[in-house]
Structure formats: C-alpha cells, structure tokens
C-alpha cells in the first residue's frame, strides 16, 4: 500500500479580526485574480466560489510543483450557492420567462472542479462531493483510497463554500430564534491541497489515515478515536495535538478523560467562523504546526509538548464525524 503525502497547501478564510462583530454573516475579501493566471474573459462569469477554488487550487499546485495532477476532487457543502440562488430567484420573479442561462450553468455543484480542469486543461479524474460538514473529508477519502491503491499518483483535493446575499436574506426572514443552529458566525472560504503518493522536497506531511462515521448508541467518538489510533499503531500519548470542530452540543472532549487531558486541544472555529468545509483550515494548520511554522494567529500553535513522533489528529464532530491523522515525515 502506497503512502499519501501532502505536497502543497493553500487556504483562504476570513481574517479572524473580522469576527469581532455582531454580524452573523461575514464574507471573505478576495484579491483580484491575476490576469496572467486567468484571462479576464474567463473570470467574468465566475462566482466567488469558483474564484476561491481557482486561487487556492492554483497556489497549491504551484507550491507542490505539480501543474498537472491526475485529477481534481472538490468538496462543497452548499455548492455554487450564489448562482443557484440567482437562478431560483429569477424563476420566481420573472415567472419562468426570459431566464438567463449563465446562472443555471454556473449553479451546478461541480462548477469549481470543472472550471479548474478547464483552465489547467486537466482531463483527469474530476469529482465533486457534497455532504454537509464532511464534504471535504468525502473528497479526501476518495483521494486517499486511489493514492494508496496506486490508481493515481497525485491529486488536487480541496473544498469551497460561499455565502449568498439571497440565502442570508432568506435566513434572516425565518426568524432570530431559528437562525443560528450552529452557534457561530457564518463565513465562507476554501482550501486546496496536493495529495501525492510520492514524497519530495515539497512534502509538508503524511496523511496517515482518514475515517468518516456516525455515532451509534454503543459507539461513542472517544471509543472510535481509540480504535482509529490503534489501527495506526498509535496510542493517544503519541498525539501532540487535536485540532477539532464540533457542531454537536457537546464535543466528546468535554467529558474530560485523563488521557486526553495532557494533549493540546485546539477548537479552530474561533479563527474561521463557520462554513461547511471549514475543516480545510484545520488541515492547513496541522501541516503548519508539523513544519514548525509560526504565523500570526491568536491560536497558540505550539502549546503542549512536542514529541519525537509528530502526529496531529483532526476531528470533525457533527451529524457525521470524521477523523484525519496527519504526521510529519
């Protein structure tokens, strides 16, 4: 079985200072796309989701020096929401007359993956997963399987979610008491990574394993984490940090277990706000920590003891849960 390395990483999330607000929705400030990278004629129809995908996707491929991976996999919780909303609204307001096709074309969930393929002339595997908060992990699992089975050698794997003014209005109209079911500020963002089964000078870490599961009565997350580590021949003591997100009322760590107590636990949503695929930030953060990079953030990256075996566990708890194990190589 081949190993899976991460050879490039690029993430776009809001600036955490933007979170100091009473607003419930915050949009990302996106730089203009370099016209050398993408001709203006090509960007004129692109929604923010597509632009975020292209900016991060191209940057990750540049970092990894991998301009033509064997495929592109994208996860997105809500898809191309802005164009989807735009077309839906036009149907209602214009009573199904004079509808412009552009928004419909761009509303398709696989627009981001398709546009990256189109721009980079990539005729490889092209996949789009959409499953709420485990959309990125669904794409990552597919990539992981194909790379370990040596079906492909390198894949661009990422995720993107955008906010839409129309959806914000619709949400607001529903009423305050129902607005905020996830207890946090809703944001948008993207993250793309080059996964490869070849280690090289660009390698940032190894994705040792990934799992997606639902909790059942007899099977808690804590139990599941134990089994996950065991199948990777690790004990909890060999994990130097857990970076996690939780949309369930109680994260499994709240019931403090003595073994988990010693490990630094970072709940990253204070940096990113909440969007369906915000776990890409945790993925990037873990890679940065594994490479001892310092960068400005209020999250204390280097707390907790560093160990000989550098392993970080990324957890996503919600309707479905995911575990990803990243290690330094």
């Amino acid at each position: 079985m081949q190993k899976v390395y991460i050879n490039g990483s690029s993430v776009a999330v809001i600036n955490s200072a933007q979170l100091d607000t009473t607003e419930q929705w915050i949009k990302i400030n996106l730089p203009k796309i370099d016209s050398e990278l993408v001709p203006p004629a090509a960007t004129r129809r692109m929604s923010k989701a597509v632009k975020m995908g292209i900016i991060c996707g191209m940057e990750a491929m540049r970092q990894a020096d991998c301009p033509n991976p064997d495929g592109i996999l994208v996860g997105t919780g809500k898809g191309c929401l802005v164009d989807s909303d735009k077309f839906l609204k036009a149907i209602i307001e214009q009573k199904e007359d004079f509808l412009s096709p552009t928004a419909f074309i761009q509303s398709t969930h696989n627009t981001v993956a398709g546009q990256i393929a189109l721009l980079t002339k990539n005729s490889g595997y092209n996949m789009t997963y959409s499953q709420g908060r485990i959309s990125f992990e669904s794409a990552a699992l597919d990539a992981y399987i194909q790379l370990t089975m040596n079906e492909r050698a390198s894949l661009l794997v990422g995720a993107v979610d955008e906010l839409s003014d129309i959806s914000i209005e619709v949400n607001q109209a529903i009423g305050e008491d129902q607005v905020n079911d996830t207890n946090g500020i809703q944001t948008e963002g993207a993250g793309f990574f080059v996964f490869s089964n070849q280690k090289d000078s660009h390698t940032l870490g190894e994705l040792k394993d990934i799992d997606i599961y639902r909790n059942t009565a007899g099977h808690s997350s804590e139990k599941h984490i134990g089994e996950f580590l065991k199948r990777n021949q690790l004990t909890i003591n060999q994990i130097e940090a857990i970076i996690y997100s939780s949309t369930t009322v109680e994260a499994p760590f709240n019931t403090v277990s003595p073994t988990l107590e010693k490990i630094s636990k970072i709940k990253y949503n204070s940096q990113t706000g909440i969007f369906d695929t915000d776990i890409v930030f945790a993925f990037d953060l873990a890679l940065k920590r594994l490479n001892d990079q310092t960068f400005s953030t209020s999250i204390s990256l280097n707390e907790g003891k560093k160990q000989h075996d550098r392993n970080i566990l990324i957890c996503n708890f919600g309707e479905q849960n995911s575990l990803m194990l990243l290690s330094r190589c």
Partner: peptide, 8 residues
Amino acid sequence: FATAISTA
C-alpha cells in the same frame, strides 16, 4: 457513512 456526489 453516507455521502453524495454531485457531478451533474
């Protein structure tokens, strides 16, 4: 585990 693929 349940997931969806949306490639038109």
